[in-house]
């Protein structure tokens, strides 16, 4: 079986990190299987872990009373689920649910936060990579807010 550091080396979020850094991160991870419909985390819970999807589809949702879960976004293999573990107050802002059976790597956030506190270079690398994720999803969200298919629509 492949070591976790080798597995994560090919994921965009971690690509280009040094072997040593990959080992540090991989050292905080473990394989996890989650069944369809199960929650990865829930809004308000402490963000003490995050996930890399190896297989399957995960949805980020907001639960609204009377409207049920509103699905904001879906994430698939190669994508990272969760960034609240890296930013105070380390609480989840959304629900994450597996839409199908998922193979995940679960990372221990407390462990990684400890390593980052000692190794600022690793901290910088993780911060810039997660910030890039945040930016790309923020941009996608802004686009989503425009509701372009609703009104300004091609007739053609």
């Amino acid at each position: 079986m492949q070591a976790l550091d080798e597995l994560i080396a090919h994921v965009p979020t971690f690509a280009g990190l040094s072997e040593e850094q990959l080992k540090l991160i991989g050292g905080c991870g473990r394989n996890r299987h989650i069944g369809a419909g199960e929650m990865l985390f829930a809004e308000g819970d402490p963000a003490d872990h995050f996930f890399l999807i190896r297989r399957g589809l995960v949805a980020l949702e907001v639960h609204a009373p009377g409207r049920g879960p509103l699905r904001i976004e879906t994430l698939e293999h190669g994508e990272v689920v969760g960034w609240s573990w890296l930013f105070a107050p380390y609480r989840w802002q959304l629900d994450a649910r597996a839409l199908e059976a998922c193979e995940l790597i679960e990372f221990d956030a407390a462990c990684l936060r400890g390593k980052v506190a000692e190794d600022h270079e690793l901290g910088y690398q993780l911060m810039s990579r997660f910030a890039a994720n945040v930016i790309s999803r923020l941009q996608a969200t802004r686009f989503q807010l425009l509701d372009v298919y609703g009104k300004s629509e091609v007739t053609a």
Partner: peptide
């Protein structure tokens, strides 16, 4: 992919550029 979905949709949610 769809911009928004309820629980019945099991495909991708998010904008097409994603």
């Amino acid at each position: 992919t769809v911009d928004s979905a309820g629980p019945e949709w099991l495909g991708h949610v998010g904008v097409v550029t994603r």
